[in-house]
Design a protein around this nucleic acid. Structure first.
Lengths: 217, 217
DNA sequence: TGTACATCAGTGAACGCGCGTTCACTGATGTAC
DNA sequence: TGTACATCAGTGAACGCGCGTTCACTGATGTAC
């Protein structure tokens, strides 16, 4: 009688091939994002999405098996965008001759993730849905684990640290902390956004300086 | 046509007065927590809650105007429990003769919040719902703002710091960070819980040591 | 201590509506020869 | 270059079901005198 929540199909059915189909597909995603803002994840439905997108419900079912699959795509795309911000940041600031450069520019990273997320329609709502909706949770967790792993490997390499589970945990805590500060900046408008992002970045960099060799200058 | 999400009634209607009524009321809350685990906030309904609680739907409507009001009570109770853990921790470790005692015991605080939240039925699910469901967001935000304010005032007093907006932001970032680490420990079972809680606590204490006078010993 | 009355607690039945999902179908686009 | 056919894209209509909500009601508990 009760739904155990396992095995909810998230994969898309048919991929849109023709131009018209791609527009329909994107219109559905846009509609879903708008509705996430207007009615929330607890009330969004495939009927509403289709109506808002200007297509009939069976058109939606052509591409998505259910509403979770739509949210999944929104979530995966947001994670991709955030990961891309990370990659660009790494490319800019990973310099073997000046390893501390990375840790001195965490503020910029948080600011850019903040801007990127805030610039996506329903960015925060998507983030919150990824947390709250069980079948979607892995999207966020996998992404965070991956970033933590990458951050760990990069820092260990830059500073020649020996393999250490504790340092890996430190990387994961840093990622989660960074995101929580960004989410707070997006959620709570009584807060000084910039102060909060700078403080968060500063906390993380202090935390890493402790395990690193002193600055060489 | 579209629901703007403002003005959703969260206050309860009749308060249960007789013993039988109190049992009904609690049975509804218990049922809601169980269902939050089983079907999630996106699918929970007043019908399901009433059925699970063993009462008819109009009995639920006697005490709650809608499903949000039920979730609101679950959320408010969880926040109360977490706040209480904080208060007890303050009582134990605020000692004017030894101000650093507070910062040396943040691990214990995070562990206890972790245990308290994990010990409440659907603790994480409630936390995630408070984030994702717009009409409930203030419950969490108000609680966090209050704890940040209290932490700020206590530390400023213990260490004789002058009023400083930046230090207030630091307190808020610390609270948010602490909670995010606890949530991660509850959400991601691929992670070493204790390592993550200890690392989070350590990061926060480093962050505060920086703005404080050195240890006197 | 008994009883009449007021209040509190919960039920059964009903409503209209939007939900998810499926069907056979029409129309649009692509491609084989 | 034309046309027949295959595939892709989307529609209209229908279904049974659970949703939120309300009604007049019965029954249980409390209290005034």
């Amino acid at each position: 009688m009760v739904d155990t929540r396992d095995g909810i199909e998230l994969l898309e059915k048919n991929q849109p091939r023709q131009e018209r189909a791609k527009q329909t597909y994107e219109a559905i995603l846009r509609a879903a994002a708008e509705l996430l803002i207007e009615v929330g994840v607890e009330r969004i439905s495939t009927n509403m999405m289709a109506e808002r997108a200007g297509v009939t419900v069976p058109a939606l079912y052509r591409y998505f098996p259910n509403k979770y699959a739509v949210l999944y795509v929104l979530g995966a795309r947001l994670m991709d965008r955030q990961n891309k911000v990370f990659q660009d940041w790494f490319l800019r600031y990973v310099e073997p001759e000046n390893p501390h450069l990375l840790l001195n520019n965490i503020t910029e990273l948080l600011q850019q993730i903040y801007l990127e997320t805030g610039g996506v329609t329903a960015g925060i709502q998507i983030l919150q849905s990824l947390r709250a909706v069980a079948p979607l949770q892995d999207v966020r967790l996998k992404s965070h684990r991956m970033l933590a792993e990458q951050f760990y490997r990069t820092v260990a390499h830059l500073f020649d640290l020996p393999p250490d589970e504790r340092i890996a945990a430190r990387a994961r805590v840093s990622i989660e902390t960074g995101y929580s500060v960004v989410e707070m900046a997006l959620e709570d408008d009584t807060v000084d956004r910039n102060a909060v992002l700078e403080e968060g970045a500063h906390m993380i960099s202090l935390y890493w300086r402790e395990v690193l060799p002193p600055v060489q200058r």
